[in-house]
Nucleic acid binder design. Structure first.
Lengths: 339, 339
DNA sequence: TTGTAGGCGTTATCAG
DNA sequence: CTGATAACGCCTACAA
């Protein structure tokens, strides 16, 4: 039933070495033989066993990806971008979920080593030094995507969007539209890129415009509707002077904030403007349509994958330590100019 | 650098056969030796090379999944459910995207055969007879998920939600709430399960209640916002008597329909009720909150994966040809009782 | 240009 | 219970 290289060799009346050569185009073979071999290969529908091949070449043509949650559309888009490049490179993608847990991430690093992946795209939550250390000793190349290392290691190639700059731009947008009393609903404090960096961007924009804001204007959610709702509620209830705008660090929390405000008989954007983050598919479909900052996770995946393949091709190729994917401020109807 | 079974054998002063035995628990080994071997394995951090192993056992502990689009949250949830089971079985997941194209699906069937996956979960768009035939000759087990075969083959195990029944129930829900003039916005006509079957469920419910509906009440979208908007527009513009309710075959098109109606100064649910399908994450966050039918794609993935593993364990195990995942009608605010 | 043969790291089949 | 040793299917010096 299953046909091996030997069968082909016999049937084509050549050595298996020759067959191997025509398959891999690895050395000159006379046109005549080449044709004969091809003929038989086609006829018998022969496909070389990648296990046997991998055993020798130490290559599997598989690359791994670890994401916190594959059902999150953000990581869906990221994965799609990655897969796009993989396909055209003849690679295939192994997907693993970490749940955002360091323990699990470490375990996956092992498992993927076992599987002999040729490389790994890693989307973490807090890639600290010990995790980086673990990555360095793995014998397959790794590129961080979506989240840079949190402890200043420049040791692993990274492809991210600029969270600081993106949030800075978004808040500047609010300021440029006349807002001075700006609240903030961010991500978890232990989330390095999407939590801490976005907060930093917020603070930076305020500072640069000499705007001060009370502590009670700042809340941390965890990117869920529920947490966005609660955060907005807290800001609403615990401030005698309400903000005129809120920078919310993802779209779903932004929607939640809007829902809360509606319940409280506040109108968005008339009374309060809301700025989202991500420009997820649905941002456009809510009413009011959400002003937000567009991040293309697909593009991020594409660039990360390309970078990884460069690394696979040549471990020492010259690549910037960190590459940024551009973002864009999208004006829709949840933010209005004031004054 | 890389340690093999032979190194372990040497260092533990046993034969490689013995090492293999303790690793795989395949035959009795004296406790003494077993301990010694374990010790060395731990010390040297030895992990057997799965390629070499696979070469002999013909097992890779990899299963494949093909979906039309991994960035679609529906398939994200499905994948998550599948991955859940894979993990606890010590398997790892290879994800492929077909774009819903038969050509590509066929190609992936080949590629995954090459990769020597131990099994495959297949989410197609129109799994016709020729595709099924191709699947039958593959030497790894396959289970269909999300979409059954379209040409009455009962040859491949299948796990789906009951599209006919689900839509039937949803439309019955509308009828029970007093609606008689019910329009329908469905999926593509070439989409077997999600297109044709849902239409069938719609027609069935009408028929059973002796309700007739003009041709112009029925539109086909392609599950995008845009197509939902257009379909609703067409129904609105081309009927002198408007429906009191519309059954829309996914949530995003349902939202689009609502947006169109709002633009047309119609109120949902006051003037027209809208019923969605899927209960996607956001269905709850729109206003009005969407009445819909809940499908758990996660559960579907779980059951499909379990089924596949049964098949992998025992090719001839007794499994129903088609297993159904239950659905549930969710009442929210986009549908109101009339009369 | 072509063929022979050794080896990749395991498991499985024999003897002992 | 333990140990040689032949596969598994392919690539790649090395020789011819």
């Amino acid at each position: 039933m299953k046909v091996t290289i030997e069968d082909i060799a016999k049937e084509a009346n050549v050595s298996i070495a020759t067959v191997s050569r025509v398959i891999n185009n690895t050395k000159a073979v006379s046109p005549e033989l080449r044709e004969r071999v091809h003929e038989v290969i086609r006829k018998r529908n022969f496909r070389p066993n990648p296990l046997a091949k991998g055993l020798i070449t130490n290559r599997t043509n598989i690359i791994g990806i670890v994401v916190p949650d594959i059902s999150n559309p953000i990581f869906g888009a990221l994965t799609k971008g990655i897969n796009n490049i993989c396909e055209q490179q003849g690679y295939t993608l192994m997907v693993c979920e970490s749940g955002g847990q360091r323990e699990k991430e470490l375990e996956l690093l092992e498992i993927l080593a076992d599987k002999k992946v040729d490389g790994l795209l890693f989307a973490g939550v807090d890639v600290n030094h010990s995790l980086v250390k673990e990555m360095k000793i793995k014998d397959y190349p790794i590129v961080l995507v979506t989240q840079e290392a949190s402890e200043g290691d420049e040791e692993i190639k990274t492809v991210v969007h600029d969270n600081v700059k993106a949030t800075y731009d978004a808040v500047s947008f609010l300021i440029n539209n006349g807002h001075k009393k700006i609240a903030f609903i961010g991500g978890p404090e232990n989330d390095y890129s999407s939590g801490q960096k976005r907060l930093k961007g917020f603070q930076l924009a305020l500072k640069e415009n000499n705007i001060e804001v009370p502590e009670s204007y700042i809340e941390h959610g965890n990117f869920t509707f529920q947490s966005g709702f609660e955060s907005m509620k807290k800001i609403y209830e615990e401030n005698s002077v309400l903000p005129t705008a809120v920078m919310v660090c993802n779209d779903i929390m932004a929607i939640a904030a809007i829902r809360f405000l509606e319940n409280a008989n506040m109108s968005v954007p008339h009374d309060i403007s809301i700025m989202g983050f991500d420009d997820s598919e649905y941002a456009n479909y809510f009413s009011p349509e959400l002003s937000t900052v567009r991040i293309s996770y697909f593009d991020e995946g594409v660039k990360a994958a390309k970078t990884l393949f460069k690394l696979i091709d040549d471990q020492y190729s010259i690549i910037p330590n960190t590459q940024f994917i551009s973002h864009k401020i999208i004006r829709r109807n949840s933010v209005r100019p004031i004054e």
